[in-house]
């Protein structure tokens, strides 16, 4: 069974009298353990598709499935429940809570999932070691470099052992070296934990890490195949 599947989804944004068709009928499925890149130019619908797969948004039409469950019509709180237990996010702008330390940022999903303090301590320690940030655990985001912040975001995305991690341009705000490090960590975690990664990018250096590359253009899937590297 696919971790996530979208069937003929469309998403139309309406601002005033102007309608923008971000997705025009996309159908695809992501298998467990995949490391998939969504590529395409700006405005092609990558981010919109990730948001629908991540239950952050609802399609105008069509269906979205997470682990076989139709999430297209869930209400706000049901979608929050689905995200909390099943999906991790990594964003282009790092998306950490500035008032919390790296450790506390990673801890947030665990708190929301009701883990005990001992469980949280163990899991955060494990993750902070996995992203090689033990020394910076008690620093706030403004005391961390962009690469370090993105590594915290990766650890947070993994905290609740989700079945799916969605990353929107995870290296877009990083220099080459940090971008490479982030992608290597994501690849390693995919291999070690088997968690499914879907990431949007338009950086050719990044999508070479993917098992599969899905190309979007003007809200449609125009290519769905193996990565050039694989």
């Amino acid at each position: 069974m696919e971790v996530t599947k979208v069937e003929n989804v469309t998403r139309v944004y309406t601002v005033g009298d102007v309608e923008t068709h971000a997705l025009r009928g996309v159908t695809l499925g992501i298998q467990p353990g995949e490391f998939t890149a969504l590529v395409g130019p700006s405005g092609s619908g990558k981010t919109t598709l990730l948001q629908l797969m991540g239950c952050l948004d609802q399609p105008t039409s069509g269906q979205v499935f997470i682990n076989g469950k139709d999430v297209s019509q869930l209400n706000r709180n049901q979608r929050a429940d689905m995200r909390r237990g099943t999906i991790g996010f990594i964003f282009q702008f790092f998306a950490l809570i500035p008032t919390l330390t790296a450790y506390e940022n990673i801890e947030v999903p665990l708190l929301l999932n009701g883990h005990t303090p001992a469980e949280r301590r163990k899991r955060v320690q494990q993750l902070i070691e996995a992203v090689d940030l033990v020394e910076r655990a008690h620093h706030r985001p403004d005391q961390l470099s962009g690469g370090q912040q993105q590594r915290v975001a990766i650890a947070r995305a993994l905290a609740s052992t989700p079945s799916l991690i969605l990353a929107d341009e995870p290296t877009a705000n990083l220099d080459t070296e940090n971008g490479k490090q982030v992608m290597e960590i994501m690849t390693r975690l995919n291999q070690e934990t088997g968690v499914t990664f879907v990431f949007a990018t338009h950086d050719p250096r990044v999508f070479t890490y993917a098992h599969r590359v899905i190309t979007l253009q003007d809200g449609l899937v125009v290519e769905n195949g193996k990565s050039p590297r694989k």
């Binding site: 952050l56 706000r76 929050a80 998306a95 999903p109 929301l112 947070r156």
Partner: peptide
């Protein structure tokens, strides 16, 4: 606003 979005994305419910 963005932080609220982040918290919401990681699964924080409206009541929280």
């Amino acid at each position: 606003t963005r932080e609220i979005g982040i918290l919401s994305a990681v699964g924080m419910k409206s009541n929280h």
